[in-house]
Design a protein around this nucleic acid. Sequence first.
DNA 1: AAGACGAAAGTGGTTGA
DNA 2: TCAACAACTTTCGTCTT
Length: 307
Amino acid sequence: MSYVKKCPECGSINLFFNKDKGEIICKDCGLVIEDKMVDFTQEWREFDSEDGEKRRRTGAPMTYTQFDQGMGTDIGRKSELYGLGGKDRNKFFRLRKWQYRISTAIERNLKLALAEMKRVASYLKLPKSVEEESARIYTLAVQKGLVRGRSMESVVAGALYAACRRHEVPRTLDELSEASGIEKKEIGRTYRFVTRELGITILPSNPADYIARFASSLKLSADTQTKAIEILDKAQRAELTSGRGPTGIAAASLYVSALIHGEKRTQREVADVAGVTEVTIRNRYKELLDKLNLEKDIKKIKKRKKK
DNA sequence: AAGACGAAAGTGGTTGA
DNA sequence: TCAACAACTTTCGTCTT
């Protein structure tokens, strides 16, 4: 297996390693560098604990979701004091004190923020990869001093939102807002600010990414989903999508395709799960009918019903 | 009676001077 | 910093099933 250290596309060394999918992805340009990777479990067997100690070559995985990336040194607790004489004992306490002092405001802030992030992420059932990315973004933001003057929570929410977008598992601002208790516009503001300051480029979110989630909460069939994506595709080619809110488009496509497949949902229902109003769905829906001449499909259904 | 449709006025955010 | 502007929402009345 070739061992990749740099992204062949943009040269970045900022690679993202997704254990579940077995992929390596470039965090900067999104290129999937290596997929279908082999097996990452240890290749030896442990017959007793000593054996394992000897053969283990690495420590715990490095992660951004721990405030010190899982690599800090801990000076132990009292239980480990057993057997230390008076001199050593004093030394031990001095070291503890220092450690405490060293953990500056930044680190304490990070600790708190990452706890909050974990909470929100699990509330939204976000995959680990997104949480990781979000933690990375937040860490960078703290290091650049971008949190100053903003509430920690809002930056956390902004980082999460950005991470979702990057990983193409978009959650709407509304959902983030509900989960974090931060106002929607506040999240949007910090999100824009942080991404701009950190120079993170975010691709405009793709309506297709919303389809699966909306469809499942509406209990629509896989066929309907496929059709909706097909419609979306056509809509994009007809330039109906630029400038419009992606959720509106996704919702309208789903609505139409549900209609075609005879799994009718009311505009209200679709509007609710998509977080837009019926009116928006209607507007998009009308455009879709006009530009993609789907009328014939709809009419066919109606005729079939009459028979 | 519920859902679909459309008009009109209001809202928050972006853009360009 | 302010005004114009586009997208979207809210509200409400009417039509259709």
